[in-house]
Lab assay of single mutants.
Amino acid sequence: MLDDRARMEAAKKEKVEQILAEFQLQEEDLKKVMRRMQKEMDRGLRLETHEEASVKMLPTYVRSTPEGSEVGDFLSLDLGGTNFRVMLVKVGEGEEGQWSVKTKHQMYSIPEDAMTGTAEMLFDYISECISDFLDKHQMKHKKLPLGFTFSFPVRHEDIDKGILLNWTKGFKASGAEGNNVVGLLRDAIKRRGDFEMDVVAMVNDTVATMISCYYEDHQCEVGMIVGTGCNACYMEEMQNVELVEGDEGRMCVNTEWGAFGDSGELDEFLLEYDRLVDESSANPGQQLYEKLIGGKYMGELVRLVLLRLVDENLLFHGEASEQLRTRGAFETRFVSQVESDTGDRKQIYNILSTLGLRPSTTDCDIVRRACESVSTRAAHMCSAGLAGVINRMRESRSEDVMRITVGVDGSVYKLHPSFKERFHASVRRLTPSCEITFIESEEGSGRGAALVSAVACKKACMLGQ
């Protein structure tokens, strides 16, 4: 009897593995994704193909990295998701002549009506938060230079001027797309009239992360975010950046690689679950690469896999709870928690219980395998993109072996128990001629924006502006 049951459990697990095998990517698959990513990057950089390229390769006008001589107080704003952060950054000489960066910050959550109302409502709310922060720190009387981390696709015309191309991540505030974001912020500050600010720089969160990590390690020339969304930036040779005049030196390019796949480059790798996630998203047909990796989508992918296993009578005796059938019910943090389970399955059992399920031991094991399959594919897909960037940098610099540091931020990278190990191992397999160091950014977005502002202020002083 026991043997029969054991055989049935083994057969069930084997069927589960057959279904989950769809998520496995072979090294040849990853090399294919990497080569296609490089081709799209090239198209994004070139003037004649930029418009139709899915990977936009947006110039950021960040050319210099901090040298350690900029000092002063800077205000930093960070808008990239449902939370908005205001930070005071003091850049100065530390002990023994070292450079020191001290920060104080406060988080504000953005109400739904500000995210989806008008641009005026959104930026009025942001300036209200700045006003509140300055009151708390008794700094209303000071006109501070301000660095703005704005983590949406922007076409820069200068370091302090950028046109919002399109909202992502659930934002829909009308009247912002096609307009200068810094102008919208300046107008809102003017409307309030109770404080003055000098907006000197606007950067993407990947750029802010790279600059913040450069402060720790001067070989950091790539910034990457794996959180709600997924994106990367890197220092490109100016001669390859056709959208900006000049051939000397390097400029940081914001790849906006989340949109890779929007022209069909990933079609052969998309599964039924991916198509369902895409169809029910706020932007169907867009940001397809990001939807395979980002935390906004990972939990939902797992939920759809679990429903398939229920329908195949391989999980929960073929019956799903009402909660499990509800879109968004299986949160991405559950994926991390399930994979963090120590082996007694308590954590998995508790999560499934909150979803109205009474799982068996085998159910718990199957749910864990589903989570591992989805998150491992995410790590491997992400590795193909980064390997594409790094191999490109090595080739354009004609280096036999390139040493490089990548600064990384984002909740999936930082909080998932195995993502970074799987990701690092896969990147290294795909970049055999590179020695890569990964560092995690601390308060990256805010500190990085302030350091970019410090560079901009120093330049302005040198130019006598």
Rank of each mutant, 00 (worst) to 15 (best):
D3A: 03
D4I: 06
A6I: 08
R7E: 09
A10Y: 14
A11I: 13
K12I: 15
K12D: 15
K12C: 14
K13E: 13
K13V: 14
E14G: 13
E14K: 11
E17A: 15
Q18L: 13
Q18C: 11
A21C: 06
A21D: 12
A21L: 11
E28D: 12
L30S: 15
L30M: 04
K31Q: 06
K32P: 07
V33I: 07
M34H: 05
M37G: 01
L45N: 12
L45F: 03
R46I: 12
E52S: 13
E52L: 14
S54D: 10
V55N: 08
L58F: 09
L58R: 06
P59Q: 05
T60A: 01
T60Y: 00
Y61C: 06
V62Y: 00
V62D: 00
S64V: 13
S64T: 15
S64Q: 15
S64R: 15
S69Q: 07
E70S: 06
V71A: 04
G72Q: 00
D73K: 00
L75D: 00
L77S: 05
L79W: 09
L79F: 13
L79A: 06
G81L: 15
T82Y: 04
F84H: 02
F84C: 07
R85Q: 06
V86N: 02
V86C: 08
L88R: 02
L88V: 05
K90W: 02
V91R: 04
G92N: 03
E93S: 11
E95K: 13
E95N: 08
E95W: 09
E96P: 15
G97F: 11
V101K: 02
K102Q: 12
K102R: 04
T103P: 02
K104I: 10
K104W: 07
Q106G: 05
M107A: 09
Y108F: 08
Y108H: 07
S109E: 12
I110Y: 11
E112F: 04
A114R: 13
G117V: 09
G117C: 12
G117W: 13
T118A: 10
M121S: 13
M121C: 06
L122F: 15
F123G: 06
F123D: 01
F123N: 11
C129T: 10
I130Y: 08
D132Q: 14
D132F: 07
F133L: 04
D135G: 03
K136E: 08
H137N: 14
M139G: 07
M139T: 06
P145A: 10
P145H: 00
G147P: 00
F150K: 14
F152C: 09
F152T: 12
R155Q: 13
H156C: 07
D158T: 15
G162Y: 12
G162K: 12
I163E: 13
L165S: 14
L165R: 09
N166S: 11
W167A: 13
T168F: 12
K169G: 13
G170W: 10
F171P: 12
K172H: 04
S174M: 06
S174T: 02
G175D: 08
G175E: 04
G175S: 05
G178S: 14
N180Q: 11
N180S: 13
V182C: 14
V182G: 12
L184E: 00
L184I: 12
L185E: 01
L185F: 06
L185M: 03
I189G: 04
I189K: 08
R192W: 05
R192V: 03
D198E: 08
V200A: 03
A201C: 02
M202A: 05
N204D: 08
D205R: 06
D205M: 02
T206N: 04
T206F: 02
C213F: 09
Y214L: 02
Y215M: 02
Y215G: 00
Y215L: 02
D217E: 05
Q219H: 06
Q219I: 15
C220R: 00
V222D: 00
I225M: 03
I225E: 03
V226N: 02
G227K: 02
G227A: 07
T228W: 02
T228C: 06
G229Q: 15
G229E: 09
N231P: 02
N231T: 06
C233N: 00
C233A: 00
Y234G: 00
Y234D: 00
Y234C: 04
E236D: 03
E237I: 04
E237Y: 04
M238Q: 00
N240M: 02
V244A: 15
E248S: 06
E248P: 03
E248F: 06
E248L: 07
G249I: 01
N254G: 04
N254K: 03
G258D: 15
A259H: 14
F260C: 01
G261A: 09
G261L: 09
D262H: 13
G264W: 06
L266S: 07
D267T: 14
D267Q: 08
E268F: 03
E268T: 07
F269R: 03
L270C: 06
L271W: 00
E272I: 06
R275N: 11
L276G: 08
V277A: 09
V277D: 03
E279A: 14
E279L: 15
S280Q: 15
P284I: 15
P284E: 14
G285Q: 05
Q286R: 14
Q286T: 15
E290S: 14
E290M: 15
E290F: 13
E290N: 12
G294Q: 06
G294M: 08
G295T: 14
K296L: 14
K296W: 14
E300R: 02
L301A: 10
L301C: 08
V305W: 00
L306W: 00
L306C: 10
L307N: 13
L307R: 05
L307H: 03
V310K: 14
V310D: 07
V310A: 05
D311E: 12
D311R: 09
E312I: 12
L314S: 10
L315D: 00
L315R: 00
L315P: 00
E319N: 13
A320F: 15
E322W: 11
Q323N: 15
Q323C: 10
R325V: 11
R325S: 11
T326C: 09
R327A: 14
G328I: 02
E331Y: 10
E331W: 15
T332H: 13
T332R: 12
T332A: 12
R333G: 14
V335L: 10
Q337Y: 03
V338A: 01
T342L: 02
D344K: 01
R345E: 06
Q347E: 07
Q347D: 09
L352M: 02
L352F: 05
L355R: 03
L355E: 01
L357E: 06
R358G: 04
R358V: 10
S360G: 05
S360P: 14
S360R: 02
T362L: 09
C364Q: 02
D365W: 07
D365N: 03
V367M: 02
R368W: 06
R369Q: 08
S373Q: 06
S373D: 09
V374G: 01
A378R: 11
A378S: 12
A379D: 02
H380Q: 13
M381Y: 14
M381N: 04
M381G: 08
M381K: 01
C382V: 08
G385L: 09
L386Q: 01
V389P: 03
I390F: 08
I390A: 10
N391M: 08
M393F: 12
E395V: 05
S396L: 12
E399V: 05
M402H: 11
I404N: 10
T405W: 01
V406Y: 00
G407W: 03
G407K: 10
D409C: 09
G410V: 09
G410H: 10
G410K: 06
V412M: 05
Y413P: 08
L415F: 06
L415W: 05
P417A: 02
K420R: 06
E421W: 14
E421C: 10
R428M: 12
L430G: 03
T431F: 07
F438A: 02
I439V: 06
I439R: 10
E442D: 09
E442S: 14
S445L: 12
S445C: 12
G446R: 13
G446V: 12
G448D: 08
G448H: 11
A449Y: 06
A450Y: 15
A450D: 11
A450M: 14
V452K: 13
S453G: 15
C457K: 15
C457L: 13
C457F: 12
A460R: 11
A460K: 12
C461I: 13
L463S: 14
L463Q: 07
